[in-house]
Computed example of a mutant assay.
Amino acid sequence: MVDKSDRTRDPVLLDQLLTVRRGTAFWHRAVEALDDASLDGPTLLEGWTRRHLIAHVGYNARAIARLVLWANTDEEHPMYSSPEDRNREIEEGATMPARALRHLTDHAAVSLDVEWRDTPEDLWSYQVRTAQGRTVPLSETVWMRTREVWLHAVDLDNGALVSDIPEHVLERLLGDIVGMWAKRGTDPGLAIHVEGREDLGVLGSGADDPEATVRGDLPAVVSWVSGRGGARLTEGAEHTPPRWI
């Protein structure tokens, strides 16, 4: 009998793998709910149709799988050869017949999951380089994919909501985005309040300026900080967040 279980026994990593697999299922349900004609419709991402987004998510799985291959072979396999090649790949993928496009996103996700499953315990700390030039342990690729599938399912704009994303994923997204602003020096100087979550504190650098406030529940705040609109905020929707990725 073939053992189909993960080779890692790290409970934290196993929980992260479970979250990304649930997010992948969430993404696939959102795609499957679209008929072929609807693939030409717009997304929440400016300039991209659903075809572009589905191609992107499929090719992203392949790109992350290259990082897993890098760790498992000790031979460098970058995510993309260049930003231009990445963009060209997405544009070309968006022209695929609907059946081929669906197969791309399904097959790439399965292949990536198999690569993760078969990675030995000691290789999860292997250092790889992301498309943004960050050097991270291989375990970070699980989070990279997690945010892709959960957020982009919402971006398809066919019923999935930020509030459908698990709370612990939203919490990490919020921390990552605000932390990235601080690291890049692009913090907008706002005080960000998450209603009902005093444990998260006041985020952002504007805590001493009550006139510069963004406020809402966790899904609303994450939607705003990630550039997906502030319609559900209770305060501060007029502010524009910096880019984060």
Results as ranks from 00 to 15, higher is better:
Leu112Ser: 01
Arg147Val: 07
His103Tyr: 06
Glu76Ala: 13
Arg147Gly: 03
Ser81Gln: 06
Ala100Glu: 15
Ala100Met: 14
Thr141Met: 04
His107Pro: 01
Leu161Trp: 12
Thr105Cys: 02
Gln127Arg: 15
Val114Lys: 12
Thr141Tyr: 03
Leu173Cys: 07
Ser125Glu: 14
Val128Leu: 09
Arg117Leu: 03
Glu75Gly: 00
Val114Thr: 12
Asp118Thr: 12
Glu84Lys: 04
Glu148Arg: 06
Gly159Ser: 01
Val162Cys: 10
Thr119Met: 06
Pro83Phe: 00
Thr141Phe: 03
Leu151Gln: 02
Pro120Asn: 07
Glu121Lys: 07
Trp124Thr: 02
Ala131Ile: 08
Glu171Leu: 14
Glu92Asn: 13
His168Pro: 10
Ala108Thr: 15
Leu156Phe: 12
Glu75Met: 05
Thr130Leu: 11
Leu173Lys: 06
Ala153Ile: 06
Glu89Gln: 08
Met96Phe: 13
Glu84Val: 10
Glu115Phe: 14
Leu138Lys: 02
Arg145Gln: 09
Arg117Lys: 11
Thr119Tyr: 02
Pro166Phe: 13
Ala94Ser: 11
Arg99Val: 15
Gln132Gly: 09
Asp118Leu: 13
Thr130Ser: 13
Glu148Ala: 04
Gln127Met: 08
Gly133Ser: 13
Asn87Glu: 11
Met79Gln: 14
Leu161Arg: 15
Ala109Cys: 05
Arg99Ser: 15
Ala94Asn: 00
Trp143Met: 00
Leu104Pro: 02
Gly159Met: 00
Glu171Phe: 05
Asp157Trp: 05
